[in-house]
Every structure is written in C-alpha cells, then in structure tokens.
Nucleic acid binder design. Structure first.
Lengths: 152, 152
DNA sequence: CTGATATCTTACGTTAACGTCAACTATCAA
DNA sequence: TTGATAGTTGACGTTAACGTAAGATATCAG
C-alpha cells in the first residue's frame, strides 16, 4: 500500500481501532483506490499494514472530517499525487541524490497543497467567527443600554 | 417562521437562490422543524419569508458546511434555543425593559454557544495546520541537505 | 495438528439529505 | 379575466458511505 512501508505487521482490525474507524471502512477505501492495495496479496489472504499506512489513513480521515471532503474528492487528491509519482518514476535516472531530491520536492508540494486547503477553511471559519463576534458585541451593547442606561 | 419577522415578502425560489440552495431543501428543513413554519398559512398557499428568515437559513447552512453538523444536530440546537424561548415566555411579565433585557441575554447565550462550536473547530484545524507545517519544515530541511550540503 | 479468532469475499441492507415527477393551485402582470 | 409562472403536496427515486450477515479461509497460540 505504500512503497516505502517498513514493517507491515498490523492487521486490519488493529489499524481500524487505532484510527477510529471500522475494518469495513478500510476495505471500502482500498476499493476506491485511496489506500493503493499491496500487490503481493493473494485472494483471501489477510491484509497487512505498516505505520505509514496508519498515518495515511489518519490523514484521509482528517481531510474528510475537518474539511468535509467527499471520498471522491479524496480520490482526486490521491490520484493527482500518484500521477506526479508516476512522472518521477519515468524520470527514474539512478536512485541518486538527484532522484531523492526530486522525491522530497514532490512531497513538499503535496503537503503545501493540503496546507492550502486547510488555510482556506481557516479563513472562512475566521470570517464566520468574526461575524458572530460582531453580533455578540452589538448584543452586549444593547444589554448595557437596557441594564444601566435608559432608552428602550 | 420568525416572531420578529418584518416584511415577509420573499418567495421560496428567491430565498433559495439567494442562499444557494434549492426550494426542496427549504421545505425539507421546514419539515424537520429547522425553520419553524409560519402559522397563518393554509394548505396550498405559498410560503413567504423575510430577511430574518434568510439570515437564519444562511446560519444553518454555514453550521452544516463549516462545522459538518448533521441536520439532526441542527435540530438539537434549534430545539434548545426554542426551549429557552418558551421559558422566557412563561416568565412573560409585561413587555417591559426587564423582558427585553431577558431576550437580549438569551440571544447572547445563543451566539456564545455557536461561537464556542466555531472556536473548537478552529482549534482542531490549527492543530492540523501545525502538524502540516512541521512536516513541511522537516521536508525543507531535508531538501536543503540534499541540495547544498552532503549526507545522503 | 487443532481449535479459537480474526479476516476474506460477496452481496444485500440502511440512512441522511435531498432530487425528481405529477397533478394541482396560488399569484400576479396585462 | 386570463394566462404565464412559480409554488404546493405527496410520493417515489437516488447517492454516498458505509453496516451487516453468511459461508469459507487464513493465522496463530498451545
């Protein structure tokens, strides 16, 4: 599920519990292409996961819950990332420093994109909070008038 | 739909367009008790709305979209608010300054509750953004090592 | 090897939040 | 008064995101 996965020792139930979802959800996400199923698995064999898989799933769940992205939109993000990964594989040179640099740079862009999404949502939330604060100020002023001052 | 509504001149289609939803959504929300249908309307007559109704609908949509609240949760909020409104009606005294003060104080609490929800979400989003920024810093440091310095 | 337990696959079920359609009807400009 | 237009009620349809159940199988402790 992840090319750079290390241990690959966790089973689906443990992953589900740690992330706070059900095994069904994990299988469903795999079916949608969100978790890029590991290739060396025969039909019927148990799925095995590593820490990087757990991190990835957590990331997806947060994008879903905090930004309200649909699974379809998540698939879009993941596919875009994989498309870039494919491009880098064709620029596959040697596994030299140059290639590693390229990988790191792609990761940077990926994280920057997510950060941009999060910040956009932060802005709209700040706007919402600002309006509520305005409302609150007006109400408190009104309360002050009614309590201490005169003027109904 | 709102006791303090003024004009009550807009029809459902105009409201829908202005808020960015469909008429069906408005009827559905009314059916769920989110818009407290106006009592003076016979079966088959057109619904009429005022600016306060538009504002209320906008508020609901934002709570739905920005905080991801379900309609059931929104019903909970609205019912809680109406329960307090009912209490104030029993403390119905005269429509004096004292009563108006009470109403303003309830509105303040209502807005404070919403603001609390928004701020909670802002905190979790800030946490998320912070983690992404950390990740980004680590990646950039790594990029710097690979580009300028040595050490693979 | 042998249960006990967790997983696997397949397939149908469920729920929220509307969409859509049909047959009427209210509103309003001309 | 008369259409044109938009709205009304009622009912069934749809979609995303899983839930659930059944029968078979893989894993692993003992």
């Amino acid at each position: 599920m992840n090319a750079t996965a290390g241990e690959r020792t966790l089973r689906i139930g443990e992953v589900a519990e740690r992330v706070g979802v059900t095994p069904r959800t994990i299988r469903y996400y795999e079916e949608l292409g969100l978790l890029g199923s590991a290739p060396g698995r025969a039909k019927g064999e148990h799925r095995l996961y590593g820490e990087t898989d757990v991190a990835r799933l957590r990331e997806l769940i947060r994008l879903r819950d905090l930004l309200g992205l649909s699974l379809e939109e998540l698939v879009g993000l993941v596919e875009a990332e994989e498309a870039r990964a494919a491009l880098r594989d064709r620029w596959h040179d040697s596994r030299s420093d140059a290639e590693r640099l390229r990988i790191v740079e792609e990761a940077i862009e990926h994280v920057e994109r997510q950060l941009e999404l999060v910040r956009a949502r932060q802005r709209t939330l700040a706007e919402f909070a600002g309006e509520l604060e305005d409302k609150l100020r007006r109400l408190r002023r009104r309360r002050h008038e009614l309590a201490g001052g005169k003027r109904g």
